[in-house]
Design a protein around this nucleic acid. Structure first.
Lengths: 232, 232
DNA sequence: TATCAAATTTGATTTTTAACAACGTAACTA
DNA sequence: TAGTTACGTTGTTAAAAATCAAATTTGATA
């Protein structure tokens, strides 16, 4: 998919206006509007490449992206999923020169990139902005760590149930949704093997807990799924 | 252990001076010195209780502390270990009203507590301080997530080897050290069961990879341990 | 449309880990 | 000091997950 300039001329209308950027002055907002670059990427496209040097902040406006890293042995791990209005790649942005994770769109996505120095200038000059940034940073990191610990607490069936509930409740807010990631990616996200993920999904289908049609998943038995998520 | 007032009258001499607080003006530093409370705790003592309301920032000066959470089913997980000059409990501090983790000393420790509002005021008024705080925050979160992912990549033997190397290289910088946590706590840290941790340690001892005397561990075969850490 | 590569699926088997049980030991306490 | 409790240890068994193998489906491409 080709990248194009954002149609909205000002960042004032952006979803971030209401969160991070709400504290900016008109002048700062204008500077941001002029400086930022807007990008559209299709599913599967790489937004940020692991190991590349950090040159800006990335704000996901629309879509979904995975935070992934490839280990020396070639195995890929997915640390988490970034949702709209998330700062992505935020984790190491202030403490590393290079991105430690790739950010890859798992749905058609739109994001804005803002120059690193501009954000740092805002941090230095606008206290309220710093505060918002710290809050955002905090909630993103906290959620990431919390989710990993939640997953570690469970075994295969519980983890798969957790992820289905996660997409249904947190991401799509609907009991029917298009699973944006492959079985292999689910496995990489919950630290299990593809075969076991597939087997578990088939099991859930056999037990009439979920319905699978292509990439669409429908939760049929919310109660049972929740039970497995909590005790399975 | 009874808590006492810090002997050093000013925060200027503190280890944090060189990191987070280096950007403070003399006046701000004085305010900090007056406001902060200094505490000493013995091994095992609770610095922060999970679920209690957040009322301040905690800076670990001396010692070691574990970041632990107890799950509804009573199982404890250790998210990570805080080392001197770490901000602890930082993770959710800007995004939650209550601590999501208990912070418990695993060695005799000293820490300072600074009022939440004072730090927030500094964030709002001192841009350089905000920047330092973001950097610290970033590196702490990044390390925490990175370590969890590293652990997930390994199985039992690799995880135990990882933890031994972690204490030897990162914490004590010595091939001989006093293990500050119990077998059960190692298990909670690497998401395995006590029995398996014990068995693995015994195995390492039998294979002359480590020597165990009471709580003291000595790495005998650095190479073999590293190999297990990477491939075991 | 034919072909190829990747993803999905199921089965069989092995390896890894958890669970259970039992016992020694060290630390704490009445 | 005796008793209690948590910790550490080892063995045995059961459960869970990884691995290996093979077939099928799907999707992209020539």
């Amino acid at each position: 998919m080709t990248e194009s300039i954002c149609s909205s001329s000002s960042c004032a209308q952006c979803g971030f206006r209401s969160s991070i950027f709400s504290s900016l002055t008109d002048e700062q907002l204008k500077e941001l509007t002029v400086q930022k670059s807007f990008h559209k990427v299709g599913k599967g496209e790489v937004i940020v490449e692991q190991g590349s040097s950090i040159n800006g902040f990335i704000f996901l406006r629309v879509g979904l992206a995975k935070l992934a890293r490839i280990n020396p042995d070639g195995r890929e791990q997915i640390a988490g999923i970034a949702t709209p209005n998330d700062f992505v790649g935020l984790l190491s942005i202030f403490s590393s020169k290079t991105y430690k994770y790739s950010i890859i769109a798992i749905e058609d996505s739109e994001y804005c990139q803002v120059d690193y120095q501009l954000v740092m200038d805002l941090v230095e000059t606008n206290g309220k902005f710093s505060k918002s940034l710290l809050e955002k940073f905090s909630s993103v990191s906290d959620l990431l760590v919390g989710t990993r610990l939640e997953l570690e607490l469970r075994q295969l069936r519980g983890r798969v149930a957790f992820i289905i509930c996660y997409f249904a409740n947190e991401i799509y807010k609907d009991k029917t949704f298009n699973l944006p990631i492959s079985r292999k990616e689910i496995a990489e996200l919950i630290d299990m093997r593809v075969e076991n993920v597939v087997r578990t999904l088939s099991e859930f289908r056999r037990d009439k807990i979920i319905k699978i049609e292509g990439t669409t998943i429908e939760i049929l038995d919310q109660e049972k799924l929740k039970w497995i998520k909590m005790h399975g």
